[in-house]
Design a protein around this nucleic acid. Structure first.
Lengths: 193, 193
DNA sequence: CCTACCGATCGGTAGG
DNA sequence: CCTACCGATCGGTAGG
């Protein structure tokens, strides 16, 4: 049973769609008001500023990604298993929140200070979690990579285009997608190994 | 010997940096004028509109990517070789034009019709070139992938984060980077193959 | 949640 | 390339 969303949640939801589609700067409060069926001034009864909406979206998503990887890292024993789980977790967060993920990935630069720096620091910490899994794998002989940071960022960027095309109605389920991505990133394209 | 840039080229160059940093919508013609040391109105002696600048950046980069992959595809005999060359070519275009690449990748959605559709169609054609290499590799037994389109897009997205961190002064050269990316994407992380 | 409105800023033009 | 300016629109506030 889904509870009826509060007005504030409705505002955030519609704003997320607009921010993804047109970008934060190109989305006006009048655009948002039109979609909500109210006047622009009325939005300010529920939120303090346009940036507050962006802030809430970005930091909520950051929180979701951390929660997901916390669970994932506890799951596996080998580095390969933990990386596979981390990939699956990341894919699940994106596929469950495609629009918010797009905003999280593309619009954070419109946060002003100090939120901007805080966001970047969170993102860096999250990347560090992947880096750490890769490092362990290299140390115990499971992985072979040119550079741990480089590898972690390549993996993440290989996951982060998902929001551009994923549709719940598609033929691949989130778990299918995660498996395919893990296979590609862990084993590569080549057949003779 | 580099020729002195025309005013139009200077405008494009400064606009590229601003569009990358602040985004197209959040960049005003006054911002651009300030950087150029002239008045906003004076910019219009050289360009027709703000969008024209974006258009020129996006389509020039599209052209660069196509030129690069044309050369790359002629080079190799096996699919693996051609993919490696295509990756190298793509990396070279990005590392030579980090700011314009960022604009090409992130700001194209602010193009109005019909440019918007034309751009997407070019991008799709470019992705098709990678898809085609992957397909050949699968057909002749070199590659094993879950889905050709999926694989091509994962590869490209694994290359397209480069513009966010590459600096010419860094310790990896563009060729080092290309080799590392090819190794990761073709062979995967795992050591026991 | 609305009406009424604010000062600031936007992309762009006219005319030199 | 500048001065002078346009109408439109922006995020946001006052007061109910």
């Amino acid at each position: 049973m889904k509870e009826a969303p509060t007005r504030k949640e409705q505002i955030e939801e519609k704003a997320t769609a607009l921010f993804k589609e047109k970008g934060f700067s190109a989305t006006s409060m009048r655009d948002l008001a039109t979609v909500l069926g109210i006047e622009a001034a009325s939005i300010y009864s529920h939120i303090r500023s346009k940036e507050e909406i962006l802030h809430r979206i970005c930091f909520r998503m950051a929180h979701e990604f951390f929660q997901a990887i916390d669970a994932a890292e506890a799951a596996g024993t080998t580095a390969a298993e933990r990386l596979t789980e981390a990939i699956k977790a990341h894919v699940q967060v994106i596929t469950k929140n495609t629009e918010a993920s797009a905003v999280f990935l593309n619009e954070w630069r419109h946060l002003s200070e100090p939120s901007h720096s805080e966001f970047l620091s969170l993102r860096d910490k999250y990347e560090g979690r992947f880096r750490e899994i890769v490092r362990t794998g290299v140390q115990n002989g499971e992985f072979q990579v040119p550079d741990e940071k480089f590898a972690a960022l390549t993996i993440l960027s290989g996951l982060n285009w998902l929001h551009t095309w994923y549709k719940p109605s598609g033929k691949m389920s989130p778990n299918d997608i995660a498996e395919n991505l893990s296979a590609m990133l862990l084993n590569g394209l080549k057949i003779n190994k």
